[in-house]
Structures are given as C-alpha cells and as structure tokens.
Amino acid sequence: MAVDAKVVAQIAHLARLHIDENLVTEYASEMTRVLALAEAMDDVDTDNVEPMAHPTHAVQRLREDAVKETGQRDAFQAIAPAVEGGHYLVPQVIE
C-alpha cells in the first residue's frame, strides 16, 4: 500500500499535525516503507485467532466510588499556557 501526498495530508489532518509542504513526499515514502513491513503479516492465516489487546489475561479491577481528591486547580493551572478566571483558554470556537 503506497502512501501518497494526499493520504499524508488526510492523516496529518486527522492527527492534527502541520506537515511542511516540502516534507510531505518524504513522509509519504517513509510511511510506505514502514507499512510495507506490516505486509509480512498478510501471508499468515489468522482467521481463527483472537486479537490480543493486552499482554496479560487479567481483568479490570473496579474502584470504590469515593471522592478522594479535591481541587488542585492552582497547581495544575500554574503550568498551563493560557488561563483566565479558572478556565483554560483556546482561540474562539464557533459551534
């Protein structure tokens, strides 16, 4: 599966990454090469194999429903790029 410039642009948009115009073809060829690695898997019959999402067979532990943390807003917002009135600020979003 060869990745072309158009695909790079689509994927970069999905991933919200700005890609320099002059690097698009380079990314395309690198992606193509890495994805070509994955083609080695095509030959294997995996019809009856379960996908394995976790390396261990453990199951999810459930947490008690209790409030254990209280506001540390100042600590968190001290490292934020833009805050005002307790809100995080971003450029105006129009809905």
Partner: peptide
C-alpha cells in the same frame, strides 16, 4: 486487528 492477532500467535 491483524497485528493484534499476530501478537496472539
């Protein structure tokens, strides 16, 4: 999904 299956193998 293919990769997760291979992972299982």
């Amino acid at each position: 999904i293919k990769a997760q299956k291979i992972r299982n193998l």
